[in-house]
């Protein structure tokens, strides 16, 4: 079994509550229209697309924060698409997620130590891994006693990464994790992810709207547009010879530094 994830015919539609009639079910809006792809072990896959393309919905379906309407999601050979929550719980250690906004994803009333130890305790893992995870993301162990609001944006996102890797998962989903950071913090977090992918032999799916961020990290890129895969290619080939029109549009939208540009 080479592929960690094998997704076939993934459909997700959500109820449109704004147009719900007084009686009866709300009409459904299709978000993802039959996606089929696989993620091999050790791959770093970029999932890109514009806003509303369904990339975050796809990510949330992969870690089963939402249940797909139809289709199969094989994780290590087991179909998790419609597994009920109790059956899913023991598997959850193996696929983790890093969230976009660390201020929202870290409970403001818990210290970093509590935040890191709770998932470990749930899965019966040694609590000492909390401190080790902080070492791995380059934060001092003293930060275990800090509250999230006492950290900078980059430090918070490192805590989010530490929480995900502390469980030693097979797969991590990173959902727009650098879009809230300034450029230098972005570079640091990306460099950290590269190291962690190597050290922990992680499989990573990296969601972003920004192709230039994905280019550095990813071995393969899936381009989503309006809930469909428009291109799925190795990173180098995608940047050199994009096939889909939409991919070309995304590529041309990357701002390139122009050293000759005057300041006025």
């Amino acid at each position: 079994m080479a592929d960690l994830y094998s997704v076939t015919g993934l459909h997700v539609s959500l109820a449109d509550m704004t147009r719900k009639p007084l009686l009866g079910a709300a009409p459904r809006i299709g978000i993802l229209h039959g996606l089929t792809f696989a993620i091999g072990r050790g791959e770093v896959v970029g999932i890109v697309g514009g806003s509303g393309s369904g990339k975050s919905t796809l990510g949330r379906a992969l870690v089963r924060l939402l249940e797909p309407t139809a289709g199969r999601i094989l994780f290590d050979g087991q179909d998790i698409a419609h597994l009920p929550e109790p059956a899913l719980r023991p598997l959850r250690r193996r696929f983790q997620m890093i969230f976009q906004d660390p201020l929202s994803s870290l409970n403001p009333r818990q210290t970093v130590g509590t935040i890191l130890r709770a998932p470990l305790a749930l899965h019966g893992l040694p609590l000492a891994r909390a401190a080790e995870a902080l070492d791995a993301v380059g934060l001092p162990r003293a930060h275990l006693a800090r509250y999230p609001h006492e950290l900078s944006g980059g430090q918070r996102q490192r805590v989010g990464i530490a929480r995900a890797i502390a469980l030693r998962p097979d797969f991590i989903l990173a959902d727009e994790i650098v879009s809230g950071l300034d450029v230098s913090s972005q570079a640091q977090v990306l460099a950290l992810l590269e190291t962690l992918v190597r050290d922990f032999s992680l499989t990573l799916a990296f969601i972003s709207h920004d192709l230039s961020v994905v280019r550095r990290l990813c071995t393969r890129i899936i381009v989503l547009h309006q809930g469909r895969i428009v291109e799925d290619a190795p990173a180098a080939r995608l940047f050199d010879a994009p096939k889909a029109e939409y991919t070309r549009m995304l590529l041309s939208a990357i701002p390139l530094p122009d050293p000759d540009q005057p300041w006025d």
């Binding site: 924060l65 023991p90 250690r93 409970n107």
Partner: peptide
């Protein structure tokens, strides 16, 4: 609606426990 609740779910925490340890303190 905060992501720390989604995060507790990703970590495999049950609903009632999430309510008691994550939501209630806030």
């Amino acid at each position: 609606a905060m992501d720390y609740v989604a995060s507790a779910r990703v970590a495999g925490m049950g609903r009632l426990r999430t309510l008691a340890t994550e939501i209630l303190p806030n």
